[in-house]
């Protein structure tokens, strides 16, 4: 009897989990990363729905127009987080601000990852003189002081391209160096494997080898890096906006909202104006970092759990 039960069990062998399933399982077990993911999800949804939510949040859903009648009102039942010095509802602006901050962060990250992966994989795969030229170029980009060049480039491009995209392009163009180096080093190690030699020997084109064989194997590194870059891009956007070199002043981003703390009067006496964006921003960055750590752990086949 006993042997027959084992036989029936053997008939239906459990499919072993794919690497992605294992990673997902590990990630779901990580409480901190899960809480962070939920937070980011909520922020994203609120930011996306901001235009639809705005009419229900406050009596003055306009985020740009100055409202002389309702300036600097502390939080109350009508304006849950109060109004700023131009009489605009802080909560509404906070949601809209998340939209801009996340949009800039996401687009810039996409750009950085695309550029970095492209340069890194080409340099790593082809090696030799291509590698040398591309990597010296990467060194050059990495050697620019980031903030300094962002501001200078922003000043030049201002007015030529639409405000928001200036920022995205400028911070994207100046930050792909690190990714390129990382991807290159991973590709260098990965291309020594036999399956790459096999793929090349049956006549796969370099593009196909990179796209189909090499990139999927370095994807986990790129994903982890992308989360961390996402966080730093959001910081870059808000810091630049705070200094007045980011998105246009009329756009409500978290950095722009925080810039009102430049006035000692607002900073000292009206914390409801600048604290919500500061807290939202910090929590977002913290969450993204936790998610990044969680992903790093989950995607590492050597890690326990």
């Amino acid at each position: 009897m006993a042997s027959s039960t084992t036989l029936t069990q053997q008939k239906k062998p459990e499919r072993s989990l794919s690497p992605w399933q294992i990673a997902r399982k590990k990630f779901f077990k990580n409480k901190l990363a899960m809480v962070s993911s939920v937070y980011i999800l909520v922020v994203t949804i609120l930011a996306l729905l901001a235009p639809f939510l705005a009419p229900y949040l406050s009596p003055s859903p306009d985020i740009v127009k100055v409202n002389i009648g309702s300036m600097n009102i502390p939080p109350n039942s009508e304006h849950i987080l109060g109004t700023d010095k131009s009489g605009r509802d802080v909560l509404t602006r906070l949601f809209y601000g998340g939209r801009i901050s996340l949009l800039v962060g996401f687009s810039a990250t996409l750009m950085v990852i695309t550029l970095g992966t492209l340069v890194g994989s080409i340099a790593g795969f082809f090696g030799g003189i291509v590698d040398n030229i591309l990597m010296r170029f990467t060194d050059l980009v990495l050697n620019f002081p980031f903030l300094v060049f962002v501001m200078v480039l922003n000043t030049i491009l201002y007015g030529i391209v639409d405000g928001l995209w200036v920022l995205i392009i400028v911070i994207g163009v100046l930050s792909w160096g690190g990714v390129a180096r990382l991807v290159r080093s991973k590709i260098l190690a990965e291309k020594e494997n036999e399956y790459i030699l096999a793929a090349l020997s049956i006549g796969c084109s370099p593009v196909k080898v990179i796209w189909k064989h090499l990139l999927p194997n370095v994807m986990s590194t790129i994903i982890v890096q992308a989360t961390l870059i996402f966080a730093s891009m959001i910081v870059a956007e808000s810091a630049l906006s705070y200094l007045g070199f980011g998105v246009p002043q009329s756009t409500p981003s978290w950095g722009i909202m925080l810039a009102s703390a430049n006035e000692p009067d607002v900073l000292q006496g009206k914390p409801w104006i600048w604290m919500p964006p500061a807290i939202a921003l910090t929590l977002t960055i913290l969450s993204i970092n936790f998610i990044g750590e969680g992903l790093k752990d989950a995607l590492n086949p050597k890690s326990l759990r």
């Binding site: 810091a239 703390a261 960055i285 913290l286």
Partner: peptide, 22 residues
């Protein structure tokens, strides 16, 4: 350390002025 890494320096500066100066 985690929090220090996560807080952008300008947010930390604003909070520091609010708390320690004002």
């Amino acid at each position: 350390n985690y929090i220090m890494l996560a807080i952008p320096s300008f947010v930390a500066a604003v909070f520091a002025i609010y708390l320690f100066s004002f």
